[in-house]
């Protein structure tokens, strides 16, 4: 019954002490989450619960703010604020937009999923 987030005492490798300046996308997720929180629509506890329920793969393979994004999505759908259909449609739209403008690069793995 150890959740994927509950790592205290587990073996791991050296700490990567390099600095990472947050990208604008990461700052946006942070700002969006804070805005939703300020409206009383999601507490930090609800956000953490959703992050934990993403499972082990998410904790191994996803980046920190990707997990936060997934958690925000789950909370907003669970609360009936948005629907999965709306999310799917918007993701499709954004991908189309990006492909047309070419201003943002999609990586090959993502291109494979779209094909």
């Amino acid at each position: 019954m150890r959740g994927p987030h509950d790592v205290g005492g587990l073996p791991d490798g050296p700490v990567d002490t390099q600095e990472h300046i947050l990208t604008f996308w990461e700052k946006q997720v942070d700002g969006l989450r804070a805005a939703v929180g300020a409206k009383g629509l999601m507490t930090s506890h609800e956000s953490r619960r959703a992050v934990e329920s993403l499972g082990h793969d998410a904790h191994e393979n996803m980046q920190y703010y990707e997990r936060w994004t997934a958690a925000l999505c789950r909370n907003m759908i669970d609360k009936g604020i948005i629907t999965q259909d709306e999310v799917d449609a918007r993701v499709t739209l954004i991908r189309k937009r990006l492909a047309e403008t070419g201003e943002l690069e999609l990586d090959s793995a993502d291109a494979g999923r779209r094909a």
């Binding site: 996308w25 946006q28 997720v29 942070d30 700002g31 969006l32 804070a34 805005a35 939703v36 300020a38 409206k39 629509l41 996803m62 980046q63 703010y65 990707e66 994004t69 997934a70 925000l72 999505c73 907003m76 604020i81 948005i82 709306e86 999310v87 918007r90 993701v91 954004i94 991908r95 990006l98 943002l104 690069e105 999609l106 990586d107 793995a109 993502d110 999923r113």
Partner: peptide, 30 residues
């Protein structure tokens, strides 16, 4: 922006703004 989750982040922001849940200005101010 390359991963599904990064696109999802933009999608959430657009949807929540369009629905009037949050304002674009709130996100920028934060």
């Amino acid at each position: 922006v390359h991963s599904y989750y990064q696109i999802l982040g933009i999608a959430l922001k657009e949807l929540l703004i369009e629905k009037g849940i949050v304002a674009a200005a709130d996100v920028r101010r934060n």
